[in-house]
């Protein structure tokens, strides 16, 4: 183990990469062990934790799910009720979707009320807001996928709302819907956006978010 590591380190010089993450010091004012009120600084980490759960459970759900209006509902029904632990994995994804919004909202409020978005951390706040919007997009597109009544009608209304935008509204509607009605083509579209496009954007944004935190450090005590 050790010799494999040193063999790689000799060639790639990887020690500084992880030492940089591992050895940085965390100040007292964000440490709940010193001040209990510092638990508000945990919300960001918990948001990331739920995000990881979402990514994993989502990957596993696609082993059974099909984005097709004839089979989508029965495949969800099957994976939830017939496959062992299916109710837990789908439950994780369903409740995690709500929890990630809650945690992100609390994290945003913490950053807002501690004024941590101020210089020099403006860019990270903007990226954080973009992550927020991507998350809302993931929530909106994921809501349709089980193809039950709730999903169908909420999406129909959502697309109608998008249509009210001046000038581009009709194009947005057409783009989201993919066809003349909310149907087969809408479902495949939402699936692609939910599973490939938005997660890719989100991972990029998360990378930027974490890079900046590490680079700029946590904002100081009030």
């Amino acid at each position: 183990m050790k010799s494999v590591y040193s063999w790689m380190d000799e060639r790639l010089d990887i020690t500084p990469l992880w030492r940089d993450i591992a050895d940085h010091e965390v100040p007292e004012h964000v440490n709940p062990a010193h001040h209990f009120s510092a638990f508000v600084y945990c919300f960001g980490g918990l948001t990331f934790f739920v995000t990881v759960i979402q990514i994993l459970s989502g990957m596993f759900l696609t082993m059974y799910y099909v984005p097709d209006i004839i089979n989508a509902h029965s495949s969800v029904d099957y994976l939830q009720n017939k496959v062992a632990f299916g109710d837990i994995v789908r439950g994780m994804h369903h409740w995690g979707a709500s929890l990630v919004i809650v945690m992100m909202f609390l994290h945003t409020l913490r950053v807002f009320f501690t004024g941590s978005y101020k210089a020099p951390r403006e860019m990270n706040w903007v990226i954080g807001m973009l992550i927020f919007m991507v998350m809302l997009g993931l929530g909106f597109t994921g809501y349709l996928l089980p193809w039950d009544n709730k999903a169908y009608f909420a999406t129909k209304v959502g697309i109608q709302i998008a249509e009210t935008a001046p000038v581009i509204g009709a194009y947005i509607k057409e783009f989201l819907q993919g066809g003349p009605v909310v149907g087969a083509q809408t479902l495949t579209r939402f699936f692609a956006i939910h599973v490939f496009f938005l997660p890719a954007v989100m991972l990029a944004l998360l990378g930027g978010h974490f890079f900046m935190i590490r680079k700029q450090g946590i904002s100081g005590p009030l």
Partner: peptide, 15 residues
Amino acid sequence: GITIPMIRFAVDPLL
């Protein structure tokens, strides 16, 4: 806690 349910879920056809 997170992965055991998922792995059991994935290998269900085998079992």
